[in-house]
Design a protein around this nucleic acid. Structure first.
Length: 769
DNA sequence: GACGCACCGCTTTTT
DNA sequence: GCGGTGCGTC
């Protein structure tokens, strides 16, 4: 116990040892949040205040859940199995598997990922002859998911015009179709669980009484449904229920665009009458200048809960700021700086290059590739999302639940077996007529199409029969062969990677079976009741027998079902080149939660960061500022910021002003590597040396660009596209275009918040910057 | 049934 | 500027 608590600072200690009451922990970046969360659990168990089975810990990502489990197992001598630690979706999946009857789901219900969901909506639109110009599938999906995230069923959505009424109708059709097929989307996992527990009182009370301590990570990222779910679990407003321990940081709320509601923090504080609010402000990550920059920037936001990070680490290096002439040159500069960092002994994996949007990575990647520097881009296609892996999964899905139409359509003719669009159309008509799944409609088909289709279902049933008594890895192996997938890719010219990915599925299955506590040889298809019902805890409450949805998964589902939900809920890593020491490229969003010795924040330009579309949304710029705050606080020792005068975006050259965020950073913490414009110096005549004039090692493409621009300057009274200027009324701007010549010369200038203006150069008084 | 061409859209992302 | 998608042709 002494061990557990030692080395905690006073605030951390206070949070860990709070009495069993609701609590809100405001945990700043790098303040030891995960440590507090895990130590709290360990302390509660070690002091005998709760048994492992009384703990429910919820995270957003599998990574965070795994991290908690790992840390806990080093702190506690006991088995962590009895605890419920997982993502919202993972926990809901487990609950729904256990109580599938009460939730009105088939035992082998399957989970649609976003790809599957979208293709299902497209099918639905087609089947109902709906113009997908008027109802873009993505928007229909957004509408459905949004309402589910608000806890609303189609019947509860209020529609005010014909368009909305149609959307509501589609929502209902979509849900009906899911129910017929026995599939649920991500939002449905949560909503269905929520409805199950609200409706079913004995079940609700059982879980409310069981979980004495509910702990939530990244609380600022919860959406309304998740918050309602937590309220229900914690028995808010009922005589039962445990304490809710919420950890979050309102300044790091960057997911409003997908429904996260920071307001949940304030709501929690008042609705749960939180007496215990603790702020963790001591930062163990970054040097002083970096924190000063973060603190001063975020102070520009309103409606904060209020927090200021501090450190004992000293000021450290100032933040280095660089103005590049172009995106190419920005990339070139990053490489030069990275090289010298590495020369000073930095590890490549301790250098992160962050950007606002993925499109920015291309130029940087290209430069890194040319320079022969190893790098790793985060956020590509993940393992279980690859086409060939999804195909294999579809075969497995059909064996477990043949009514999954998405899976059926994906592989009915892949590899090709002579079942064309015409046959599929007939089959869909038959399915509509008999109100059944495509698979079930196959017997109604006649002729050549009928026999090809029958051969396909026979193939599925054949493999199922053949593998009846086999364990999951064998089932996977046989499926890969019998489906013809392996053969198909082996014959393909560039199919080697795909074959490798497919073969990897066998090892993935082996690993899964052993990690999830299924017996090594447990038959993949066998139902849970036969395989492991002995482990399930049966509870009798109010005369109702309840099988508690306890770990391990083997108690509630077959190895195959479990593996399939694993594939949907945990998409896997994106690349296997883990061991390599490489520069880390990622968006600011994906950098959240990570830290590096050296961080580059790139593309700090108006319109890009903050992104232009954010200024149209209510509170959009504040969210961008929080995003910038997240970016800054990733750095331990060195932080670099860069922006460009010219940038290629969507096939067009754009001229942006430097980001407004520079004006919100403390002067004394910045070191400008290129001459900088003094704000109070706009109208002085002294000419400024810009990065343009002192480019150290400009790539050739850049030289050409510069030359081209200088050519034009002769005809334009010395003005140049991309040049920074100041105007008495509009302030600082960038010349975006020049037209005409001599006395008729006009300039189009981007004045940032004043917008785009076209000025007659013989009249307008412009200052060169 | 495979390939080629035209068209679209384009912020951020986990489950 | 690029990648995904959907349609038309051989």
């Amino acid at each position: 116990m002494q061990n557990l608590l030692h080395n905690l600072n006073p605030e951390q200690l206070a949070a860990v040892t709070l009495p069993p009451q609701n609590a809100l922990i405001l945990a700043g970046a790098g303040s030891g949040k995960t440590r507090v969360l895990t130590t709290r659990i360990a302390w509660l168990i070690q002091t005998g205040q709760v048994s492992p089975a009384g703990v429910l810990a919820v995270t957003f990502t599998n990574k965070a859940a795994k991290e908690m489990l790992t840390r806990l197992s080093t702190m506690l001598p006991i088995n962590t199995r009895g605890m419920w630690i997982g993502t919202f979706h993972g926990l809901c999946n487990r609950l729904l598997r256990t109580h599938y009857k009460d939730a009105a789901l088939p035992q082998t219900f399957q989970i649609l990922d976003s790809q599957d969901q979208l293709s299902m909506i497209k099918r639905l639109l087609k089947a109902n002859n709906i113009d997908d110009e008027k109802f873009p599938p993505k928007q229909v999906m957004y509408f459905i998911n949004n309402n589910k995230d608000q806890g609303l069923r189609a019947s509860q959505v209020e529609a005010y015009d014909a368009l909305e009424r149609k959307l509501v109708e589609l929502y209902q059709l979509y849900d009906d179709q899911c129910q017929r097929e026995g599939v649920v989307d991500f939002a449905e996992l949560l909503l269905r669980t929520y409805e199950l527990l609200s409706r079913n009182e004995p079940l609700r009370q059982h879980y409310q009484q069981r979980f004495r301590h509910i702990l939530v990570d990244e609380f600022q990222d919860t959406n309304n449904l998740q918050y309602a779910w937590l309220k229900l679990m914690a028995g808010h407003g009922s005589p039962y229920g445990g304490a809710l321990f919420a950890v979050g940081d309102d300044d790091q709320s960057i997911y409003a665009f997908r429904g996260a509601n920071v307001g949940n923090m304030q709501a929690f504080e008042s609705e749960f009458r939180v007496q215990n609010l603790i702020k963790l402000e001591q930062n163990y990550r970054s040097h002083g200048h970096i924190l000063d920059a973060a603190n001063m920037l975020i102070a520009n936001n309103s409606r904060r809960l209020g927090k200021n990070l501090r450190t004992d680490a000293g000021h450290g290096e100032p933040v280095r700021v660089y103005e590049a002439s172009s995106d190419l040159q920005e990339a070139q500069w990053i490489i030069e700086e990275a090289k010298s960092l590495i020369a000073e002994g930095a590890l490549r994996r301790e250098i992160a290059i962050l950007y606002r949007s993925n499109a920015q990575s291309r130029v940087i990647e290209h430069a890194l590739f040319s320079a022969g520097m190893p790098y790793h881009v985060y956020g590509g296609l993940r393992y279980f999302q690859r086409a060939e892996v999804k195909h294999a999964i579809a075969y497995l899905q059909l064996m477990d639940n043949p009514h999954n139409d998405s899976a059926f359509l994906r592989v009915v003719n892949f590899p090709a077996r002579g079942i064309g669009a015409r046959s599929i159309e007939q089959l869909q008509n038959a399915a509509a007529t008999y109100n059944c799944s495509l698979y079930a409609a196959v017997p109604y088909m006649v002729g050549k199409a009928g026999s090809s289709l029958a051969a396909f279902t026979k193939l599925i049933e054949g493999v199922r029969f053949e593998t009846q008594q086999l364990a999951l890895p064998e089932l996977v192996k046989i499926t890969l062969d019998s489906s013809g997938l392996l053969q198909h890719y082996a014959n393909e010219k560039e199919g080697a990677d795909r074959v490798e990915n497919l073969e990897q599925m066998v090892s993935a299955a082996t690993q899964f079976v052993s990690e999830e506590g299924f017996g090594q040889g447990a038959p993949a298809h066998l139902g849970p009741q036969a395989s492991a019902a002995a482990g399930a805890q049966v509870v009798v409450a109010d005369g109702v027998e309840i099988i508690d949805a306890d770990a391990p998964l083997a108690t509630v589902m077959s190895p195959l079902s479990a593996f399939l939900s694993h594939a949907s809920l945990e998409a896997g890593d994106n690349q296997a080149q883990e061991g390599q020491d490489a520069l880390q490229l990622m968006t600011v969003h994906s950098a959240k939660g990570l830290e590096f010795d050296n961080v580059f924040i790139t593309g700090l330009e108006e319109g890009l960061f903050p992104h232009e579309s954010s200024s149209k949304e209510e509170g959009g710029v504040e969210e961008e500022r929080r995003l910038m705050y997240v970016a800054i606080t990733r750095a331990r020792k060195r932080l670099y910021m860069a922006f460009c005068q010219t940038r290629m975006l969507h096939g067009q050259t754009r001229y942006n002003m430097k980001s407004r965020f520079f004006d919100e950073l403390p002067e004394e913490s910045l070191k400008w590597l290129t001459a900088r414009v003094q704000q109070n110096n706009w109208f002085s005549t002294g000419s400024r040396k810009s990065a343009w004039d002192e480019m150290p090692s400009v790539p050739s493409a850049d030289n050409r660009l510069a030359a081209r621009m200088n050519e034009r300057s002769g005809a334009s009274g010395g003005w140049r596209i991309g040049e920074s200027v100041a105007h008495a009324k509009f302030g600082e701007g960038v010349i975006v275009n020049l037209e005409g010549s001599g006395a008729n010369c006009r300039a189009q200038i981007n004045f940032g918040s004043f917008g785009m203006k076209v000025l007659d150069l013989s009249v307008a008084k412009l200052e060169r910057l």
